[in-house]
Design a protein around this nucleic acid. Structure first.
Lengths: 218, 218, 218, 218
DNA sequence: ATCTAATCGAGACGGTACGTCGAGTCTTCCC
DNA sequence: GGGAAGACTCGACGTACCGTCTCGATTAGAT
């Protein structure tokens, strides 16, 4: 979590996946949780993260923008980082799936092009901030991998695996390496910022990967 | 700088490159700067950064370990981040140059293999911490790019350019893209941590890149 | 304030007189101020002032002894000096009124004797410290005069004025001068320390003053 | 000394009375002490003390105004306070002696009037600052008493003792009490500042003291 | 129609690190 | 060897953010 940045650890938080079904069943006697406030807090957290960066995303700032109180935040999340992780999860949930065109080259090109579009939009700053925070916080790192990295990789790998099964890619293709070979360069430019994230760059990376993949048997 | 993390900015600090030549000429009248203390501060800063992460690298901790006083730190560096940037510069200065074997495949394989050895050693944590800090601090980002990313890229590109000139690589090779294609995946695993940084991985990335580079003309 | 000692000024702090009446009315919405902590801070401040003198009365020491945090101190008082001024006020509030025996000589003798008893007790050090601090800090000086000097003088003058009205003292007695003539010598010994503050001294001063007052018309 | 204000003590400094005679005898081998620098330091110290008060009389400020270096100050004086004490001594040495008119009333009146003139001039601030500093520093207190208070009292007492011997004052007059009775009120107004130090006030105090002294036998 | 319990906004609390400043010491060069 | 310059250690200053807490005010379900 974020306060690991301050030297403390809080590994016990398991971000609950919110079910929509039997919510009435688990409702106690008192005043129920204010779902509107929850939404405002998550939205405010992401907004400030985008605008001001990770370090200025203070609990006070989130509370003030959300019109909520800090106690409300800390009643439902164990620390500042957990709020952001959950906010990330909500964002990611709105993500569109990968294209499945039946054509290896088109699949990869569109994946990378879509991904660059995503990162150059508002979300880019959020992902940057998350990867940054993950470097000094194990829980943050776990969350980012579980919520974003892993599902994306699995979806993308499943797509490529289909191409292998159907003979359009060599059978011995190491999908883990391929994933990193096509996404790694993009994350790298995002984080190091030494060169811009353009469509041409996506095209270049896709071309290189495809050359390697399709010519490997030659 | 680091205190950008606290919302202030201090862009006026220009980390002086220390020349060894005419130091006597520019020496003033008073007690000269204690170069030993300077070294101890930079060493302590990097040590703590490695051991405890960025957030626990407090000015007090650096001062205590260096046997220096906080005032001395703040006399010479405008803030905590500037100390770390200069410490990074000193580290990087000790870096060995790239291998130049005359063989494209061997050059790339050794580059990546050496790089992974570097990142999995003590320095890995330092680079992670820097990239993380760079995400919320423009000055940090600049420093990291100027001190580490750019010189490395230029050296590596010069090497590949030689292979182009001597006909071992296609003339239309986009070196910028190639750089990101081979280094990006490694930085990505370093930062996202979804899979280990092994020699096999370096080998896999190198192989893919070489297939793309050498087969592109086919 | 104290930091005037450091060259800054902060004249905007108006030490609120705490009324006991409609406290519920003026209570805001949040957690109310912790009056126990306030008391502990003021007590700790005075204790340390007595024990260690003004210069060792650091904000950290006050916070530690009071079991409070420095932030709490600085939330309620603009600086260290303001804490001490308020602490002085609380002390002074517990002061017993002047004796009123109907006899001029007895009134003056008892006033001075009580005052010397006060100054030679724990409070003596506090008053010394305050007068000292007041020399380099206008706000401190104001506070000391308003909180301690002025009310005491007015009470004592009122008492003597009664003796004038009832004919036991000459009608043209200059009460301001008389006040300084009887209290000045005692403060002088307190501050200059060239001779001890004994009951005999109080007696001597009282005797001189009474001779002057009662014989002036002869 | 002053650094008692910071909790340290340094009681070993014995302010040497500077003799003018055999200076050559005690001169060592190296460059002799720069008497001009010494004078500039003492002058600067008093000037800053007058202008900016005790707290702003920093060692750096004295050094800068004197065109001297801090090392020079600390070579000859053990701490900041010792500089000021010696500066005070030089000032006091220029003081004129008490008037001796042969008339008790005139002597006292002129003493007090001269004293008020002294305190309302540039020296007033200096004496205030000294008494203030003495409250938290035993060495300062000693110095102030020895250099200023005691000699003045002895001179003034000697004068009054002559009046006793010559029968103009009662034989049982307690001179210690009389001294405090006439000087105490003036110091009190100087330090507490509740009322101005005027010639009328000096007159009032003198009148009261004379009534007490001259009528005590009645 | 209360009563009860959990929630809410507000904001004070203890703690920790920040970057600044003054005291007094030390180290270099110059005279 | 003394002096100017100025770097050094130490420790207090006042500020900001974290995560906890305690208020009065709300808002349900239970009685």
């Amino acid at each position: 979590m974020l306060q690991d940045l301050n030297g403390r650890s809080q590994p016990e938080y398991l971000p609950l996946v919110r079910e929509g079904g039997d919510e009435a069943a688990q409702r106690g006697r008192g005043r129920p949780r204010d779902e509107v406030a929850r939404g405002r807090i998550l939205t405010a957290a992401l907004e400030i993260l985008e605008e001001a960066g990770f370090a200025n995303t203070t609990a006070d700032a989130i509370a003030e923008r959300a019109g909520a109180s800090k106690a409300t935040i800390y009643r439902w999340w164990p620390n500042k980082g957990a709020v952001l992780i959950e906010a990330l999860r909500e964002q990611v949930a709105q993500e569109t799936p990968f294209p499945d065109t039946g054509d290896v080259a088109r699949d990869i090109r569109e994946q990378l092009s879509d991904f660059i579009a995503l990162l150059t939009g508002r979300r880019g700053r959020i992902f940057k901030a998350f990867i940054a925070a993950a470097q000094s916080d194990a829980e943050f790192a776990d969350a980012f991998r579980q919520v974003w990295i892993r599902p994306r990789r699995e979806q993308a790998q499943a797509l490529l695996r289909k191409h292998i099964v159907e003979g359009r890619l060599p059978a011995d293709t190491d999908l883990e390496v391929v994933m990193d070979a096509i996404y790694g360069p993009i994350y790298f430019r995002l984080l190091a910022g030494h060169a811009p994230l353009t469509a041409e760059f996506a095209e270049g990376i896709a071309t290189m990967a495809l050359q390697a993949l399709l010519n490997s048997g030659v």
